[in-house]
Design a protein around this nucleic acid. Structure first.
Lengths: 336, 336
DNA sequence: GAAGGACTATACAACGTTGCAGGACTTAAG
DNA sequence: CTTAAGTCCTGCAACGTTGTATAGTCCTTC
């Protein structure tokens, strides 16, 4: 029903291939012919059929982005930024939610969509290591720490250093009983492991003991988990005077528990989070946090993919691991 | 490079079409043949090529969802729900951010992707009315109030009634100077118009005057806009004792300004929002709001699209407009 | 014992596009 | 004047899939 090259060609009185050449900006087309073809294109409202183009060329112009969940502000922000970065290369981004389920992550890597996408930007939660190696030739960029050594590029901040920075900020304020919220034991929870490591390192640096009772696990990284974890901390004989939460949502949940118990933040307990989501800039009190350079993460992820998709040279190089900066953002929840 | 029907057929010693029949679950295939073909499929790791399938059938199995911005929790939630609903029909959702720019909305409706998607769920911000009529045969479902009378289905809550409910809640608490934040004059800002209408209706109902000084505009519906609008209200000679914000982000921003000025919520000023995003359940104080039945909106939108995509009958019916329920959620920001 | 139907499998064409090979013509170089 | 190079355009084949048409086999049923 919609017009194809054939219809345009008929109207302009040229061959199908010539129309194709005009559409693709091939140089050796006489200006007069080009104009005539263009007029026909405009008149008919011709739009190239992507499916046919892809079938022919193998490229779809679509990259997939797989994140655990869009509802989480951090991932929503990253997604938005990646869409913008991809747009500059006129790529379309197909966003997938894995809900952190291994099965869905696997489906994505192996599954139906394999032909439909040129590349994949993946923020794995459940899958770790070699399981991801299943993927065939399609280039993949992983967001987050390097969890395996297959042929995929990585873009991440230095989680351990960043967590240490956050914790060090608390020790510098003179806090002595500093809790951590967000510990996860699953082997694939690399991010949590590294933030825990950074936390412990900063404690050691300040000569403070590591107290297992202050390291609170969290099933997932949502406000409710943070609220529940804080409640557990308040049940302790001697409650902490500061908390480092492995992300901002946990921190917001923790603050909610503190404030609803009549405690003051940062008076009684200082709270610091991780991610610098917008919520933390408008909460009461505003939330101190560690801000990863999210725009840069997005930009680099897309660039790495573009290199892999580029012709020859860079396409086959060794997997790369790129570090992105982070910075400490001090707000009311830890400020004097 | 990846195996096709041809390769599977060769390995199983059958025709290409027979493999196709097995893949598509055609009934009249002898069990033995089916098993042999399936074995070949598994052995080769065959995955159907969607592009070819689409080229042949005209259907891509992809629907597009266009929202103003993913960063906004309400849209992120809707997007997540729609992805889930679409998954049950094994559709893939292509999420587009329009950033509320007319041009991007237009591109989407007319543009390149026209062939690539079977249907479109659209939450328009900048475009109104007949401009959307440009779209050819592709079915479209609009989220939000009916802004035109072209051939598209609509799914929305009754914004006017919901806004009146929120405002009525404030009058019932005995508040007399009730402000509104989020007024927009653009003709396409239908949602804002209707919430304003509901607000005014509830004031009238309570015998309160409409005071233009209390109707504060907002460029967009983000926390920063809410914070700025609240600051303007606090500059008034006599400040309001309650605020109805047209969404929760505005409300969170407004609360931030109030609390940072040392005012109490709801003691000095009661605040109510709209959307029931998660942030409001963990803010301090927790935020009263109007909760649209988002899961139902998502479900209906996908169902309507499915009907239009279905064979014959329902596909060509008159455009429908579906109402979804909402309910008032009272939390600390308005509770005694 | 013949006619009809259900079952099983195949071949061919087509979807809309682009790469390749090549033809016809023009201009520049020797 | 011949050859080479450049320009402009065209036809054919192929990408991987599925709908239609067809044909052979086997089982009913009268």
């Amino acid at each position: 029903m919609p017009p194809g090259l054939k219809d345009v060609a008929a109207r302009a009185g040229v061959s199908i291939k010539t129309v194709s050449n005009v559409v693709n900006g091939y140089v050796h087309v006489a200006p007069a012919t080009r104009a005539r073809v263009q007029a026909a294109i405009d008149a008919l409202g011709y739009v190239p059929n992507i499916a046919a183009r892809q079938l022919r060329s193998g490229r779809s112009g679509v990259i997939a982005l797989a994140v655990p969940e869009l509802q989480s502000p951090y991932f929503a922000e990253i997604a938005g930024l990646i869409v913008q970065a991809a747009e500059r290369r006129s790529w379309t981004v197909l966003i997938d939610q894995t809900d952190g389920q291994a099965e869905r992550e696997r489906d994505l890597v192996e599954g139906l969509r394999r032909h439909a996408i040129d590349g994949l930007i993946f923020s794995p939660l459940a899958l770790a290591g070699e399981e991801l190696a299943l993927r065939d030739g399609t280039p993949m960029v992983l967001l987050g720490e390097r969890v395996w050594h297959g042929p995929a590029d990585h873009v991440a901040i230095d989680n351990t250093a960043a967590a240490a920075d956050a914790t060090r900020h608390l020790t510098a304020l003179g806090r002595r009983r500093i809790a951590a919220i967000g510990v996860q034991n699953r082997p694939s929870a690399v991010t949590a492991h590294q933030r825990l490591a950074g936390y412990r390192a900063a404690l050691a640096e300040a000569g403070l003991p590591v107290d297992p009772a202050l390291e609170i696990p969290a099933e997932s990284f949502h406000r409710a988990d943070g609220a529940a974890a804080m409640a557990r901390l308040l049940d302790l004989d001697s409650r902490p005077d500061a908390v480092f939460c492995f992300n901002d949502l946990l921190a917001l949940g923790a603050m909610r528990t503190l404030l609803s118990q009549g405690l003051s933040v940062p008076g009684d307990v200082a709270v610091i989070g991780f991610d610098d989501i917008e919520d933390g800039r408008f909460s009461t009190p505003t939330l101190s946090t560690v801000a990863p350079d999210a725009p840069r993460i997005a930009q680099l992820a897309v660039e790495l993919l573009a290199e892999r998709l580029g012709e020859g040279a860079a396409a086959a190089g060794a997997p790369r691991e790129l570090r992105v900066d982070h910075r400490l953002v001090v707000r009311e929840s830890t400020a004097g």
